[in-house]
Design a protein around this nucleic acid. Structure first.
Length: 587
DNA sequence: GCCGTTTTCGGCCCGACTGTTTTCAGTCG
């Protein structure tokens, strides 16, 4: 069982116990355990085998045996018992914004067991007859149910990508498989996907499909046919495994990666490269399709890499290779033809990370661990930016603590060679429009990120006035997660993005692409607008533990979808230039 | 359920806003 799956099982357990009225501290302890598991870089199964599980902070005897059971049986008896007591629809109710435990318990007690029933009750004004429920709550149910419906059947990049990569490794290691790749929306790094689509070249399709269906993740086969199977993980994410002859592979990969518009733009350029090909046994015609170029060493299995082959495919259309993230509207094809495709930023260009939390506020890992992890990633620099004093729930730093932390950072930084650690802060833009520290404190910080965490439902004028104070402050370098959205769970606060971009351009304030797959904020369309206005972007992880530093890849993919290039991004620049940018007077 | 001890029991993050009621519990971040 994947760490993520174990974490989900624990979260589900916590939610069920909460609804059933279990001790809130116990519930919180289990939730914390889930968060710790999510943040582990080593598979839980490995730690369990080594007997190291109980040594982890937040995992005690109880969770340890629960996790061991999940690992061994793939299920937990306690979880199954709890599920029998609470219908799944009641758990869904907890996801409705503005609806909490008390309301859900009331609904459940009154016999509402599905979201649909609840929504109908709200629309017919029957919920307001219940104790403690009135019109506003009915409205919250209706709005929330609509949001959940929009989200249903969609899975975030942070869930789908790692699972797809794991399945891909499984396929690539099978002797029946000559080539396997991720394709579809996931390859284009869409924010949410409806399925994992894997394309596989194999000369033994039947044997391969039989193996795929036996994969431990394939909880349920949804549909199967000649050359494909679609199965689902236990938590619902569907996986399509499509088998294609080696000769078709690259063409089919291109076809399934891009949108229909991209494919039709390619086709409109005339006939796609086509040529009669033969299979490895020699002689037999498979199809009238394009053949992947192969190395001339006579070994059928040793084709050139998929990437090279795809480049050759586009070359066959007299086009440069078009990055998957851009294969959307079809216009990228004419751009490619005109030689005006952007030179997209790549992971290798990223030299640091400016938004990192530690256990000084609400992070999991220590200063030493985070700094070590940044150095190990080969970064040239990073900034520690814990929460500011007013965000008490995240144990935000008082002025005294902040200064203490700054000293600790300076000390640790002094030990580093060729690796610079900036002492920064993620400062709250308070609900009343003030900033959380005075200018004389901010002046001492190497990096100041200003973020909105409260008053997310204020009217636009108020939100704008708060942001304006932050952007115009000479010490504020970066605005963190500039719209505050959580993909599929929370709408952005009311901000006019054009207004924000203009102000950022005018004041020389950098805007963040928050790499967390739950946020991706700025979104790709907004980041594209930012580039057009000449607003600089910082791609940050907002990591709360070591493992999440790797979420940088999601932020970079988002930037690529926005057409961003290296020069548009703060954390691709060499140290000297970064220092110059951070210390320049703002406009 | 976890943790840390004044070590096997008691505390566990908290302040502001909101919705439902009239003084506070629920919800959020």
């Amino acid at each position: 069982m994947h760490n993520q799956e174990i974490a989900w099982a624990l979260v589900e357990m916590a939610n069920l116990l909460e609804i059933l009225g279990e001790n809130p501290f116990k519930v919180r302890a289990i939730r914390k355990g889930a968060r710790v598991i999510e943040g582990l870089e080593t598979p839980v199964s490995v730690l369990s085998a080594r007997g190291q599980l109980a040594k982890i902070d937040g995992i005690g005897k109880g969770l340890c045996s629960e996790i061991d059971e999940l690992l061994q049986a793939g299920e937990s008896r306690q979880l199954q018992r709890l599920r029998e007591k609470v219908p799944p629809g009641v758990l869904d109710m907890l996801q409705l914004p503005g609806i909490g435990l008390r309301a859900v318990r009331t609904f459940f007690a009154e016999g509402y067991t599905t979201l649909d029933e609840l929504e109908e009750g709200a629309r017919k004004h029957r919920l307001r007859l219940l104790p403690g429920i009135a019109a506003k709550t009915e409205l919250a149910v209706i709005r929330g149910a609509e949001m959940l419906r929009r989200r249903s059947g969609k899975f975030g990049l942070g869930v789908a990508k790692p699972l797809a990569e794991e399945l891909l490794r499984f396929l690539q290691n099978l002797p029946e498989v000559s080539r396997a790749e991720i394709t579809g929306d996931l390859r284009r790094s869409q924010e949410v996907v409806e399925e994992i689509h894997l394309l596989v070249a194999s000369h033994e399709p039947e044997a391969l499909l039989a193996l795929v269906k036996k994969h431990p993740s394939a909880a349920k086969v949804l549909v199967e046919g000649p050359g494909f199977v679609r199965f689902a993980f236990a938590f619902g994410l569907p996986v399509r495994v499509e088998i294609t002859p080696e000769s078709d592979f690259i063409a089919r990969w291109v076809e399934t990666t891009g949108t229909a518009q991209h494919w039709s733009a390619l086709r409109s350029r005339g006939a796609l490269p086509a040529k009669a090909v033969t299979d490895e046994s020699g002689g037999e015609l498979i199809c009238q399709q394009w053949d992947a170029p192969r190395r001339d060493d006579g070994d059928w299995r040793r084709f050139i890499s998929s990437q090279e082959a795809e480049e050759a495919f586009y070359e066959g259309l007299r086009l440069p290779w078009i990055p998957p993230e851009l294969r959307e509207s079809g216009q990228e094809v004419s751009q490619a033809e005109g030689g005006t495709l952007p030179q997209l930023v790549e992971m290798n260009d990223i030299l640091g990370d400016f938004h990192i939390h530690t256990n000084w506020s609400d992070g999991v890992s220590s200063l030493e661990e985070m700094i070590g992890a940044g150095r190990d990633r080969g970064y040239a620099y990073m900034a520690i930016t814990d929460h500011s004093q007013s965000l008490t729930v995240a144990r935000g730093l008082s002025e005294t603590k902040l200064r203490e932390q700054q000293r600790a950072i300076r000390q640790l930084a002094a030990r580093e060679k060729d690796f610079t650690v900036f002492s920064g802060i993620e400062m709250d833009i308070l609900g009343d429009g003030r900033l959380d520290y005075a200018d004389d404190i901010l002046r001492e910080m190497d990096v100041v990120i200003a973020s909105v965490h409260t008053g997310l439902r204020q009217e636009r004028q108020k939100v704008h006035s708060r942001l304006e104070t932050a952007l115009k402050n000479p010490h504020v370098d970066i605005i963190g997660h500039p719209t505050g959205r959580l993909i599929g769970t929370r709408e952005p606060y009311d901000v006019d993005i054009d207004w924000l971009l203009d102000l950022a351009a005018k004041t020389g304030t950098i805007l963040e692409i928050n790499s967390s797959p739950d946020r991706l904020d700025l979104s790709a369309p907004h980041a594209r607008l930012a580039k057009e206005r000449g607003v600089m972007i910082a791609i940050n992880t907002d990591a709360h533990d070591r493992a999440r530093l790797s979420e940088m890849a999601f932020g970079v993919a988002n930037a690529r979808r926005a057409g961003l290039e290296r020069e548009d991004i703060l954390n691709t620049k060499p140290l000297a230039e970064v220092k110059k940018i951070l210390s320049r007077p703002k406009g």
